[in-house]
């Protein structure tokens, strides 16, 4: 299913903190519509990879590209504008804002009205605000969150907060979604629901996904390709079957446990 043209590509990407290499020589190439898993023991540098790919950290080595355009040196919001969006390991929602507003924030880039329009409540203000309102509600509907549009995001149950975070990421109009342990702390029902959501967005939006996850059964079930990270470096990559039978991977996991 993976295409020859890569959407998101990293070559020899790495970052150093005070002489310590958190991640080095990280290569990845994610094709259109592909779902790639990123696994590895705790502290292997998985979240650091996400931070690199979203411009939170600036790489000290290597490069990464989005649709062939170099992303090094871009601040996070510009990386997001080029089509890479993410969720966070420890959910980061705008807790005191409504569910609807959380999604609207991600649509902000689509809105063009200026200060004067806002102050005088011109036609373009109402037109854009209404459009965004509609779009945001449509998205929420896909995730069965439309009933909760006016609830404070912080008051949602855990599983719904995860979903809202994904909805918000979708609203940025991204092509590649980086999911950081979306199933962490979820019960089996919630995980099943999450899986359903992931399948739904892949079908509907035709996006690529890079997934960090500890739930191995989930990873093995849905990922087309898996990259294993250990001590900041790629230990192995391949199909789920290859990874499951790779002796290095088994030692890395079992050796630690």
């Amino acid at each position: 299913m993976s295409n020859t043209t890569a959407v998101l590509e990293a070559k020899g990407l790495g970052v150093e903190f005070g002489g310590l290499k958190a991640v080095s020589q990280f290569d990845i190439s994610i094709g259109d519509g592909e779902l790639v898993g990123l696994i590895g023991p705790n502290g292997a540098g998985k979240t650091t990879v996400f931070n690199l790919l979203t411009g939170v950290y600036q790489p000290t080595e290597g490069k990464f590209f989005m649709n062939g355009e170099i992303m090094n040196g871009k601040p996070t919001h510009l990386v997001v504008h080029s089509g890479i969006a993410r969720t966070f390991q420890n959910i980061r929602l705008f807790k005191n804002m409504t569910v609807l507003d959380n999604v609207k924030i991600a649509f902000n880039r689509k809105m063009k009205y200026g200060l004067a329009s806002a102050v005088f409540r011109t036609g373009s203000f109402w037109k854009e605000e209404n459009e965004i309102d509609e779009k945001a509600r449509e998205l929420l509907k896909l995730f069965h969150l439309e009933e909760l549009a006016d609830t404070k995001a912080g008051n949602l149950p855990y599983g719904k907060q995860r979903k809202l975070e994904i909805t918000r990421a979708l609203a940025t109009d991204m092509k590649v979604l980086l999911l950081d342990e979306p199933a962490a702390g979820m019960n089996p029902t919630e995980t099943a629901e999450l899986l359903e959501s992931i399948n739904m967005i892949r079908e509907k939006f035709r996006i690529s996904i890079l997934l960090i996850e500890h739930d191995m059964s989930l990873v093995m079930k849905i990922c087309e390709r898996i990259i294993v990270l250990n001590y900041g470096q790629i230990l192995a990559s391949g199909t789920p079957e290859q990874i499951a039978n790779n002796p290095d991977v088994i030692t890395a996991y079992l050796g630690k446990a």
Binding site: V56, I105, N108, A169
Partner: peptide, 18 residues
């Protein structure tokens, strides 16, 4: 709206393209 989002969580705000 953007400013309130930044108040709530500036990292999430920039990750939402703000």
């Amino acid at each position: 709206r953007c400013v309130r989002a930044i108040r709530e969580d500036y990292i999430a705000a920039s990750a939402s393209g703000i």
